[in-house]
Design a protein around this nucleic acid. Structure first.
Lengths: 195, 195
DNA sequence: GAGTTATCCTGAGGCTGCCTCAGCTTGATG
DNA sequence: CATCAAGCTGAGGCAGCCTCAGGATAACTC
């Protein structure tokens, strides 16, 4: 509606920067153990900061999640660029999807947030998600150009499969992680079968 | 831990039954519009009942969800039995998966609950989920016996794919519903390809 | 190193939702 | 119509969200 997504940026004053970093650290830990709906008040107190300070730096939960996961998404984009050099484009795509699934399920609730951000501008994570979308689409296109992936598959469908795998992994919390098999089956459904 | 899952059952007294039904009706509507984490106090007041009454009949949110979705799961099991008579077992499996995905995504948050219930006894929905698991496994086995589905696919893996599709559909809320394509691709990954 | 100011911090408080329980009401039963 | 188990009520304690008025302080200037 307002069109101006919150993108938290490191503040200028020394105490501001210190707190910003402390909050981010506490948030990463809390998300990892309690999922994306961890208590913000807990995070603030873990960071040794009043709740108002947390809200000053991260006006919404989504903006905090964005800041806490930005690095990971950047890595994913960088990884795609490195993989693009591989001789076998299907191999590159496969490898990238594996990495993406792992990142998407860093903590419980992340996939949902990213999936929403992917197509909803005005969401803090949208920019990074769009970049990642491009990376994935590039790898996909290359694999299709090489005739290794069915040509009618769209990037959106690819991300659906990818998110589905991440969601399954996320659910698995304790015990059975079905995502590797999930991905394998998805790839079988996706690749062209010349013999 | 306590091993005694709550299974809400229709009470004996007339006013009790009336309220029980009213709550269930309100809950179905609320879940449909606000997802599985709809406000229980809203549901109670929509049903024209005090919050304590809701808790009397449904001591946990999960027990309310269970009661609100029991019919649908029963239908799914019955549907599987009907489909088992079909000449083509792959056709039966496909059709059933389609129906299951639709039911699983009746409202936002349901897939997650069902996926958890499937392997967590001591959850209200566990009994129905186990029944449904059996139905799906039977259809799968038949399709495998007929050589139409890869023999190394386990029922758990089938349900992972199924839940993944339902999750994608659930996310789609507004606009794009990727689940039909998702399922189609999954099926391509699953079926044996004799020519 | 004193003064100025924009930046930053604090935490009480209002709000919503969860859930419990002591006390009251009422349908069912003889 | 008397009894009472089953059922109902809603205030209240608790947790988490988020805001905002008032206070503190880094950074910059002279």
């Amino acid at each position: 509606m307002d069109g101006k997504p919150y993108i938290a940026q490191r503040p200028k004053r020394a105490d501001g920067r210190r707190n910003y970093d402390a909050i981010l650290t506490a948030a990463r830990k809390a998300f990892e153990t309690s999922g994306a709906d961890a208590s913000l008040e807990d995070i603030a107190s873990q960071a040794g900061v009043a709740i108002g300070t947390l809200y000053r730096h991260f006006p919404t939960r989504a903006s905090l999640v964005e800041a806490a996961t930005r690095d990971g998404l950047e890595n994913l984009v960088a990884h795609a660029e490195r993989l693009a050099a591989r001789p076998d484009p299907l191999d590159a795509l496969t490898e990238w999807m594996r990495a993406a699934v792992v990142h998407f399920s860093t903590f419980r609730g992340l996939v949902g947030i990213l999936a929403r951000s992917m197509y909803d501008e005005g969401t803090p994570s949208h920019a990074m998600c769009a970049a990642m979308h491009r990376s994935g689409a590039d790898l996909l296109r290359a694999a299709q150009a090489a005739g290794r992936v069915r040509p009618d598959l769209t990037p959106e469908e690819l991300f659906d499969l990818l998110s589905g795998a991440a969601w399954v992994r996320e659910q698995a919390a304790s015990g059975r992680d079905g995502s590797p098999r999930f991905l394998q089956l998805a790839l079988e459904g996706i690749t062209t079968r010349e013999r």
